[in-house]
Design a binder for these strands. Structure first.
Lengths: 361, 361
DNA sequence: ATGCAGTGATGAAACGTTTCATTGTCTTAT
DNA sequence: ATAAGACAATGAAACGTTTCATCACTGCAT
C-alpha cells in the first residue's frame, strides 16, 4: 500500500522532523514588521488587509506602502489557524489519467482559483484493487486536513456513497448520488442513453450490442436502461446475449470486442454502444488489430464527450456533455454553500446530454 | 484574467470573511483534550506523536488510547505555524489536459503521498495568451503559500527560466533547464531524435519531413538537431523546406499536415517526424480527413511516449520515455533536498530514450 | 454643559501546535 | 554518601494571524 500511509490517523509522524528546517528558511516579513514600519498597530495592518473600510485613508496608504516595501504577504497557516479557514478545496477523483478527469479538474480549478482557493487533488485508485476502502480512507483523512470544501468526482468512492453521510464540510458530488448526502450534479444518463437508442434505431440498426459499465454503478445501469428504452420505443426488439458488462476501463473494452467477435462471429451485430469512451477506445484498438472495419463492419457509438475526442479518427458518434459543464456547475454549488447563498437541503441537478452523430455510426 | 487574482500580493482579501464560518464547524478535539483525558501534559502528547522514544511505554499507551477514543488528529495549520513546514508540495504545469501531464502528476503524487506530502497543482496556461507572465506570477505567489517544495513541469514557465533563480525553496525542474537554477531531470532529447533519425534512415526513407516544437524551446531544437544528425550520419541528405515549426499543440499538427499536403502536393515525403504526440495527433486526424493513408502514403513517427498511446491505432512508431520515469526521479531529487541527503550544487540528470517501432513507420 | 452615537485606532487574547529550558527521579560511578 | 548523568515528564513561550473589547476623540442633539 504505497499510495497511502494507512496508519496516518494514528501516527502523524513527521518523517523529516528536524532534518531540513535549518537549511531552507524563507525570510518573510510579518505583520508586526509592517506595523512597526508604518507606525501603526498590528490590528490596523490587519484591518487594512481584511476590512479596508474600517481604517482611515491616510493610514491605509501608509500601511500599503510599508507592505510593498517589505514585500509582505500574510502567512496562510497563521491565518488559517486563527480563522479556521484554509482557502483550500480538496478534489477527490479516481485517477487523473482517465481522460474524463483532466478537463474536470482544470475547470474546477480555474473557477476556484479566480476567487482565491487552492486545490488539493487526490487520486483514490490504487493498483492493488482495494480501491473501495481507499475511497473511505481518503474521505476520513480529508476532514483531518481541514479543507474548506470538497468536490468528489464520480467513481472516486467506487460506489461507497455512504461515506459521504459523515462528511461535515461543504461538499459537492459529481455523478449519481443515490443517498443525497450532499449536493450533486449529474449528467442525464438515462436521457443520453435514450437518445442514442433512438438514434441507432432510426438509422436502421436492428442487431445492436451494448457494453455497459459495472452493474453496481447506478448510473451505468441508467445509461443502459435509457438506451434499451430508446431502442424499444423506436421498434428495435431486445435480443438476448447482446449485453456485456465492462469495468469502464480500457482493457475491458478490448475484452468486450473479443467477446463480441467470438460470441457473434457468424453474425456480427451492425452496431455496438459503449458506456464510456475508455471502453470504446479499447474496443476500437482491438477491432483495428483484428481487421474489423468501423463503421463498415460494425458501427460504434459511445456515451461521453471530452474535448480530446475532437482529434480521434474515425470521429466517434457520441452522446454526452463536457466534463467542464459538470465542473462549472459543481463549483457554483460549492461556492453557494461556502458563502451561505444556499443552505437548505442537499440538491441534485441534472445536466442534459447532446448527441453528436459523426463518422462511426 | 479570470484564472488568477492578479492583485493578490497586495490585497489578500478574504472574500467570504465572515459568511460561512458560523455554519460549518467541524468539532475536532485538540491536543489539550487528549492530554486531559490521558492525565498527562500537552507536551507529553506531542512527544508521543512526534518523538515516541522520549516517552515511557505506559504513558505512550495511555495517550494512544485517549487519541483513539477522541478520534484526535493534529491540526495541520497549527502544526505548520509552529514548525514552519506545511507538508505540501506544489506542482506547476502548463495544462493538465495535455496528455503528457496526468501521468507525470499522478506518479509524483503517489510518491509524495507515500511519505506524507499533499500536492497543490497549478495550471499556468491561460486562454488569453499571456501565459509567459503567468508562469512568473505563479512562481512568486507560490513562495507566499509556504509550500515545502516545488516541482516545475516542463513548459509551465513558457521558457522564463530565470524566474527560478529567485526561488528559495527546494525545487526540481522537469525538462531542459539552461540556467541550472535548481535540480532538474530531462529526457535525452538529442539522443532520442538521433535514434529516430537513424531508424528512419535505415528503413530506407530519403525524403523526410520534420515538425518541430517552438524554436525558443531549447529542447525542441535539441530533438531537431539530434534527428537531423541521425539522418545525416546514416546517409540521408538534408533537403530544404522539409521542416515546419509548430507549437507543440494539437491544432498546429493539423496545420503542419495541411502545410505538408500543400507544399509537397506533387511529391509527398515518405515519412514525417513530429516533435511530440499532440502535434502528431492533430496531423493524423487531418491525414485521415484528407484520405491520406498512414503508413502507406506517408510514414509517421513521433517523439514521446505515454501509456495512453497503447490504445491508439494505428500504433505510433515513437521514441521517448514515460513521464512516470521523469516524475519518479524528480521526486527522488526533491526528497533528497528536503531531508538534506543532497545539498550541493544543483544537478542535472538525463533520462535515456527508448525507440519503439510500431505500425506507422 | 451633558450625554450619545459614530469613527478610528489599539492592546490583549486566542487559535493548536512544538520545543526550549527546567525539574524531579532513578542509576551508576566515584 | 555523594556527584554526575541519563531518563521522564512538564510549564511556558513562541509561531503570525484575527477579533473582541476598550478607549479616545469628534460632532451633534438635548
Amino acid at each position: 500500500m504505497p499510495y497511502l500511509t494507512m496508519n496516518y490517523p494514528k501516527l502523524f509522524t513527521n518523517r523529516f522532523a528536524n532534518a531540513f528546517k535549518a537549511r531552507y528558511f524563507a525570510i518573510m516579513s510579518t505583520i508586526a514588521e509592517v506595523a512597526e514600519r508604518a507606525g501603526v498597530s498590528k490590528t490596523t495592518v490587519s484591518h487594512v488587509i481584511n476590512h479596508a473600510d474600517r481604517v482611515s485613508k491616510s493610514l491605509r496608504e501608509r500601511v500599503h506602502r510599508a507592505i510593498d516595501e517589505l514585500g509582505y504577504a500574510p502567512n496562510p497557516q497563521a491565518r488559517s489557524l486563527r480563522t479556521g479557514r484554509t482557502n483550500i478545496i480538496a478534489m477527490l477523483i479516481p485517477d487523473i489519467r482517465n481522460p474524463f478527469y483532466p478537463e474536470l479538474v482544470k475547470t474546477a480549478q480555474s473557477e476556484l482559483e479566480a476567487i482565491g482557493f487552492d486545490m488539493l487533488i487526490f487520486n483514490t485508485d490504487v493498483p492493488g484493487g482495494r480501491s473501495q476502502d481507499h475511497g473511505r480512507e481518503y474521505l476520513s483523512q480529508i476532514s483531518n486536513k481541514r479543507v474548506d470544501g470538497l468536490i468528489v468526482g464520480d467513481f472516486a468512492l467506487h460506489g461507497m456513497h455512504d461515506a459521504l453521510l459523515k462528511i461535515d464540510i461543504p461538499s459537492v458530488f459529481i455523478g449519481h448520488l443515490p443517498n443525497q448526502a450532499v449536493d450533486s450534479v449529474k449528467i442525464d444518463d438515462h436521457g443520453g442513453g435514450y437518445q442514442m437508442g433512438e438514434y441507432l434505431a432510426k438509422k436502421g440498426h436492428r442487431r445492436i450490442a451494448h457494453v455497459t459499465g459495472p452493474s453496481f454503478f447506478k448510473e451505468a445501469m441508467q445509461r443502459a436502461e435509457g438506451f434499451e428504452q430508446g431502442l424499444h420505443d423506436y421498434g428495435v426488439p431486445l435480443i438476448e446475449g447482446m449485453r456485456y458488462e465492462g469495468t469502464y476501463l480500457t482493457p475491458s473494452g478490448k475484452d468486450a470486442a473479443q467477446w463480441l467477435l467470438a460470441r457473434h462471429a457468424a453474425n456480427l451485430p451492425s452496431a455496438v454502444f459503449f458506456g464510456n469512451y475508455l471502453m470504446a477506445a479499447g474496443a476500437l484498438a482491438e477491432f483495428y488489430d483484428r481487421g474489423v472495419r468501423v463503421p463498415e463492419d460494425i458501427a460504434v457509438a459511445v456515451f461521453g464527450d471530452q474535448p480530446q475526442l475532437e482529434y480521434i479518427r474515425p470521429k466517434l458518434t457520441r452522446v454526452g456533455n463536457s466534463p467542464a459543464v459538470l465542473a462549472r456547475r459543481a463549483t457554483e454549488m460549492l461556492i453557494d454553500r461556502l458563502n451561505g447563498t444556499y443552505d437548505a437541503e442537499p440538491r441534485t441537478e441534472v445536466v442534459p446530454c447532446i448527441l453528436h452523430p459523426f463518422d462511426t455510426a
